[in-house]
């Protein structure tokens, strides 16, 4: 019960702060929308070019880079006025901090996607995928959990380093590649031809496995990651 109360306290604190300042959300939304406009002009110069097979890649690359922006900011606030010390002084299991921070980042990423996906669909997807919307949401959720779990763990590790803005992308991007491949393939299939749970089963299982691996990794290492 105490762990749940602490989880909710950290999550509520992060949400209140973000709703008040909108630092993270605004910068992520702007980045995503600008990236789409740039993709539109960069790849859509010839009207007869079918971009459908690039859509998954464009979408996930954009989300991953947007998340990088957010991850840096999500821990920057903990370093203002040494708030991280205040948090670490509390009798809280360090894994609770990880899950609360991951949940916060997940909520922010989902908000970005609620805004970005319709715009993206308007720009790049020429086939209606209404019948596959549940499948698409499952892909989004599984990939988002992996991005946020890995991102939160690595942002924690890099936050105490002098060059954290540089270090985080350097360690995050190579590790996120397997998830990027699976999420891109699944999304492109949905946008291009439509799919079913059966067709995408392997991809979905891979995403689930990725999420599980980094959740377990964080469970085992977070005490060390957030410590001195």
């Amino acid at each position: 019960m105490t762990g749940w109360r602490q989880f909710m306290a950290i999550l509520r604190k992060d949400l209140i702060r973000e709703l008040r300042t909108r630092e993270m959300i605004i910068s992520m939304i702007l980045f995503v929308l600008l990236a789409m406009v740039i993709f539109h002009y960069a790849f859509g110069v010839k009207e007869d070019v079918d971009l459908t097979y690039f859509t998954g890649g464009m979408l996930w690359v954009t989300f991953i880079f947007a998340m990088l922006l957010g991850l840096n900011r999500s821990f920057a606030q903990e370093q203002d006025e040494r708030c991280l010390d205040g948090l670490l002084l509390c009798p809280v299991d360090r894994v609770t901090i990880f899950f609360a921070k991951t949940a916060g980042n997940l909520i922010f990423l989902l908000i970005i996607q609620v805004v970005a996906v319709p715009v993206f669909t308007l720009f790049f997807v020429h086939r209606g995928y209404g019948s596959d919307i549940v499948l698409f949401v499952v892909v989004l959720l599984l990939a988002d959990v992996g991005i946020c779990a890995l991102g939160t763990l690595l942002a924690t590790i890099s936050m105490n380093t002098r060059s954290r803005d540089l270090l985080l992308p350097i360690i995050f991007l190579p590790l996120i590649v397997p998830l990027l491949i699976a999420a891109t393939a699944a999304t492109t299939t949905i946008f291009a031809t439509g799919a079913s749970f059966g067709v995408l089963g392997t991809r979905l299982l891979f995403l689930l496995g990725f999420d599980a691996v980094f959740m377990v990794a964080a469970y085992g290492t977070y005490d060390f990651a957030i410590g001195e």
């Binding site: 105490t2 109360r5 509520r12 702060r17 203002d80 006025e81 040494r82 509390c90 009798p91």
Partner: peptide
């Protein structure tokens, strides 16, 4: 711990800060 760094979230109110720490300490 009372330090010269107050360890308070500047974008939260006094009440929100204390509620947060109150929940963290149960």
């Amino acid at each position: 711990l009372i330090s010269h760094n107050p360890m308070l979230y500047l974008d939260l109110t006094a009440q929100e800060n204390l509620r947060f720490y109150g929940d963290m300490y149960g």
